[in-house]
């Protein structure tokens, strides 16, 4: 029996146990792989709209895997819990901040496409590759760091660093293959965590419920 009675630690332990399954790491790793695959399709010469379609299908597939993993692997092993109102409030705050980031992302994407297609007009305001790379790295890294902060996942800061360095390096060295390395740096620890989680938390026997008669 666990004898700790520090309530803050107890709550955090319960929260952290739900994020030690490696699924979040696998998901963020897969996102970088999705970008890497989409970029490699560019070399094949695939139509850009088709590439975007494949990209969004891959993104959706990654999310589906994450959701299904939580639903069918993590929850049956750890049980269901509704965390406190404070945790739910942080979740809402994160959703609001991420919506803002997505909007800003779309705006920056259009500005970048505009600047690259019009080098003589908009393009004059485009910073050099190094500076642009640095900006993209800080921007993407801070978005992932915010997720780590609001979700209270310490490993998330490592992932934020990998994202920042990967995005900056791709822009500076103009080498999209670096997305594969960044993805692997997050995906592989995720696989280790996932396997360890499955070993530590086998499926409980079916009688572990209060629903059966006499319980």
């Amino acid at each position: 029996m666990n004898a700790s009675l520090d309530l803050k630690n107890l709550e955090r332990k319960a929260w952290v146990s739900y994020h030690q399954d490696g699924l979040f790491d696998l998901y963020l790793g897969l996102l970088l792989f999705c970008i890497a695959i989409t970029n490699s399709l560019l070399e094949v010469g695939l139509d850009s709209w088709l590439r975007y379609l494949i990209f969004f299908i891959l993104l959706g597939g990654s999310w589906l895997l994450f959701w299904a993993g939580k639903r069918f692997i993590t929850t049956p092993r750890l049980g269901q819990v509704k965390f406190s109102a404070a945790r739910r409030k942080r979740k809402v705050q994160l959703a609001i901040i991420m919506s803002f980031f997505v909007l800003l992302n779309v705006l920056l994407l259009f500005l970048t496409i505009g600047a690259r297609n019009n080098p003589d007009t908009w393009g004059r305001f485009m910073p050099q590759a190094e500076l642009f790379g640095l900006f993209v790295g800080v921007y993407v890294g801070s978005a992932v760091a915010l997720i780590a902060y609001f979700k209270d996942i310490s490993r998330g800061y490592y992932m934020a660093l990998v994202y920042a360095v990967t995005f900056a390096a791709v822009e500076i060295f103009e080498n999209p293959a670096l997305y594969w390395i960044g993805g692997a740096l997050i995906f592989i620890p995720g696989v280790v965590l996932f396997v360890r989680f499955l070993q530590r938390h086998p499926l409980p026997p079916s009688e572990v419920t209060l629903d059966q008669p006499g319980a």
Binding site: L7, L10, A14, L78, V81, K82, F83, A85, H201, V208
Partner: peptide, 18 residues
């Protein structure tokens, strides 16, 4: 203590935590 720090939880969760 475990139920005090969350809104609600099921049997499996309490078994894991305690």
């Amino acid at each position: 203590a475990n139920l005090y720090v969350v809104d609600s939880a099921d049997f499996t969760f309490l078994m894991n935590q305690t």
